[in-house]
Write a protein that binds this DNA or RNA. Structure first.
Lengths: 207, 207
DNA sequence: GTCTATAGAGTGATAGAC
DNA sequence: GTCTATCACTCTATAGAC
């Protein structure tokens, strides 16, 4: 990818993150870079192709993260493996903040993202099941409870930046998301699970 | 309010709900009603004044709901009193789906809505505290846990339609939100609380 | 690859007749 | 109150010179 082509995407992400996707025009992106709109159009024929490229990049980074994912879902690992995903969300936060609008405008992105969501929820459910099996979590208190909990975790994480932005918290960090997520799990930890949890929290503080 | 003035707001809400706020122009609203754009402008000088009016209406309905709120936070009551709020969210769903964009465009709405959010979270916390006091809930397992739970409940409820829409579930119902909310509370119920809970769920099914 | 210039559609908002 | 006509602006996208 040529230097200019790369710079365009970077500037686009920067501006989208700051002002929201609908509020940034191709002119704005060109202006930010000090190049002409015609030049930008040479690299990306339309606004849609810019976001398609960004989406592609998100998919690639995501694939790397999930490719490195270990099946050993100890609590320390969950925290550690969680981190790069949260960083990805923060880096391309506009995509998640303006997701509904982007999905309305680009049905193909919508379709792919929906599939990814189901994958995510299934993954969370998998980690929970593993934790039950390894004795860190109690069996679910009633049928369907842990599937619902997995969906809840997904909602919390994927809308975390939205709620922060809407509440006017500019910090942009995921500390609260992590704490909230663990608070949901806390009541279901076994004695063994609690011990692992305490150790994991200590490891987190030290890092 | 004159008939036309009323009809304009109704049509606006209908179109906003269907296509999203940014994708509906004043022309679209006029067309939907079969009136001229000039006529619409006579009643609402600009697009902003339409949404300001809608926001005002939301505030009024909300005030009515919270005015009727009983402090007796029995589980049956929580379910019953919850209902009109969820219906309000569904009726003006575009406002909550496109909230970030609306808040970006209208700082005064943003300010008022932020204050309301803090009020909501405090209310949830109040109900939880009451339930602890009345013996339905165990005391919080650690400092700050129930405040965090209150925030979690708020996130779940206020982003419920977002997640449904993004996942492509068109149903638009809040059954799942209610169930998910109770699932969060479930692990903290006392024996007395569990009994009340079972009764409340039975009452819900019968209604 | 990069530029300038501009077409063409859509937007919010206004003016003035009826 | 309601209409038609239109201004002024912004947007995406294209054409063609360099």
């Amino acid at each position: 990818m040529s230097s200019t082509k790369q710079k365009i995407v970077d500037a686009a992400v920067r501006l989208f993150n700051e002002h929201g996707w609908v509020n940034v025009s191709v002119r704005d992106i060109a202006k930010e870079l000090g190049i002409s709109p015609g030049n930008l159009t040479y690299h990306y024929p339309n606004k849609g192709s810019v976001i398609q490229t960004i989406h592609q990049r998100i998919i690639e980074k995501r694939a790397m993260i999930f490719g490195n994912l270990s099946l050993d879902a100890s609590i320390v690992n969950v925290n550690q493996q969680f981190q790069p995903l949260l960083e990805l969300y923060a880096e391309y936060r506009f995509f998640f903040l303006d997701l509904l609008e982007i999905m309305r405008a680009f049905p193909d992105i919508a379709k792919m993202h929906r599939e990814h969501i189901e994958f995510l929820i299934t993954s969370v459910k998998g980690v929970i099941d593993y934790s039950v099996h390894s004795g860190n979590l109690h069996p679910e208190p009633k049928e369907g409870y842990y599937l619902n909990l997995s969906e809840t975790v997904w909602i919390l994480v994927s809308f975390w930046l939205n709620q922060q932005t809407i509440r006017g918290r500019a910090e942009l960090n995921y500390e609260g998301a992590r704490e909230t997520m663990w608070n949901l799990v806390l009541p279901h930890l076994t004695e063994k699970g609690k011990q692992n949890y305490e150790e994991a929290m200590l490891a987190l503080k030290e890092s």
